[in-house]
């Protein structure tokens, strides 16, 4: 009888202790990056730079949550394949507004 992560981690207390240490490091990193996010906003940079930096920090934070709290670093290939497909569709979804403007139709010359 085994479970997905019970099999990966083993039931050894030492393995779990190592993982818990990683969780705590990620937690501290997320806190620091939250302060960085607010600090960037307070500088009042030009909008394109501010947006790029804010999204970069948010992406790093999101990746930390997904990789370590959601265990994606040690997840099976099937899950990664599902998420890759989702990421492609997500990118298309976010590209739609850009395509709307690049067609040159309507009020945009």
């Amino acid at each position: 009888m085994t479970t997905d992560h019970a099999a990966d981690l083993g039931d050894h207390a030492a393995d779990l202790d190592k993982h818990v240490r990683v969780y705590l490091i990620v937690f501290v990193a997320l806190m620091v990056l939250t302060i960085v996010t607010v600090a960037i906003a307070r500088v009042h940079l030009p909008l394109p730079i501010a947006v790029s930096l804010a999204l970069l920090v948010a992406t790093i934070k999101g990746s930390l949550v997904a990789c370590y709290f959601m265990h994606l670093v040690s997840e099976k290939k099937l899950i990664l394949a599902v998420l890759t497909l989702t990421a492609v569709f997500f990118a298309v979804l976010l590209a739609l507004p850009i395509l709307t403007y690049s067609d040159g139709f309507g009020t945009h010359p």
């Binding site: 996010t37 607010v38 960037i40 906003a41 909008l47 501010a50 947006v51 804010a54 999204l55 920090v57 948010a58 934070k61 999101g62 949550v65």
Partner: peptide, 11 residues
């Protein structure tokens, strides 16, 4: 929320 926070509140 990690994405909502900067995009809605800070930019």
């Amino acid at each position: 929320w990690i994405f909502l926070f900067p995009t809605l509140y800070l930019l």
